[in-house]
């Protein structure tokens, strides 16, 4: 029997909570890390890996796999969590976050299965994803390329170089997801350098844009299911999110962009995220 929509959304929401729990598992093992941006991205990562993307965890280099680039690489704990849950990597790696000689550090590294590119220096992922989408077109491959970009990351001008090129080359096989949690390391974007109107910027660069609540699983699924939004334009999903989503003490504050995760913090977070 096929899965109903309600069942699908429940499954994805549960998987997203598992990602958040595994983020804290990794961060406790590492002593701390990027709580805020990992939790704001969790719902979207769940929908990508457990609903939308065609991947083979047992064959991570499968040539026709959909590509995912985490341009906001500091949320690597969340990416590791989703890769573990999907079966790309042994979940035991989560306990080696930041550890000596581990493939699992603060930022994605192609040393780890399922990681497409070394990212985390901000403003690199969109250009890389644009190259992947061009490579797919040249080799007549059907895979879709997704790139998740942080909002603060969009201060880097290199993003806009790539945004220009992707629309110039009409890359309908490319989707950028902006994790728009309105906060960067030092504070609110409106108090740093503002990015509004976010969606209009992407439209002006020739992208087809949809704005969603990045924590409304139904909206996330609908957006991903509607791709590409336009047959001759790259798609942008501006996902309004809450930094630290799901963990009350970390929500909507720059203080939990990155912070220590002690046993006590871990226990508080797990209490809110629901035990297994």
């Amino acid at each position: 029997m096929s899965e109903s929509r309600a069942e699908l959304l429940t499954r994805l929401e549960r998987a997203a909570q598992q990602i958040r729990r595994d983020v804290f598992r990794a961060l406790r093992a590492g002593g701390g890390g990027h709580v805020g941006g990992s939790c704001s991205a969790a719902d979207i990562l769940s929908a990508l890996y457990f609903h939308r993307m065609r991947v083979r965890p047992q064959e991570p280099e499968w040539p026709d796999r959909d590509r995912f680039v985490l341009s906001k690489g500091h949320a690597n704990a969340a990416l590791g969590a989703v890769l573990a849950q999907a079966g790309f990597i042994d979940p035991a790696i989560l306990d080696r976050f930041y550890h000596f000689d581990s493939p699992f550090g603060m930022h994605p590294d192609i040393k780890m299965a399922g990681i497409e590119m070394c990212t985390g220096a901000l403003g690199h992922g969109l250009a890389i994803a644009t190259g992947m989408a061009l490579g797919a077109r040249m080799q007549k491959q059907a895979f879709h390329t997704f790139v998740m970009i942080g909002d603060g990351e969009l201060h880097e001008g290199s993003n806009w170089e790539a945004a220009l090129a992707a629309s110039h080359y009409r890359l309908a096989n490319l989707t950028a997801i902006i994790d728009f949690n309105k906060i960067a390391q030092s504070g609110r974007l409106t108090e740093l350098v503002g990015l509004d109107p976010m969606a209009d910027k992407w439209r002006a660069f020739g992208w087809e844009v949809r704005e969603i609540d990045g924590h409304d699983m139904g909206a996330v699924v609908d957006a991903l299911d509607s791709l590409p939004f336009h047959g001759e334009r790259p798609s942008a999903i501006v996902a309004h999110t809450v930094k630290g989503k799901g963990v009350s003490f970390a929500e909507d504050t720059y203080l939990w962009h990155s912070n220590n995760v002690t046993d006590e913090v871990y226990a508080r977070a797990m209490a809110e995220l629901g035990a297994r």
Binding site: P63, R67, E116, M117, G123, H124, L126, A127, I128, A129, T130, G131, M132, A133, L134, G135, A136, M138, Q139, Q141, G157, S158, E161, A162, L164, A165, Y169
Partner: peptide
């Protein structure tokens, strides 16, 4: 023609795109 990409005056993008292309086997 189909294997040529003009990136314009955008060196950062040219390198990033080239790296992305290389990951696909080009």
């Amino acid at each position: 023609r189909e294997r040529f990409i003009e990136m314009g005056i955008a060196e950062q993008n040219a390198i990033g795109v080239a790296a992305g292309l290389a990951t696909t086997g080009m």
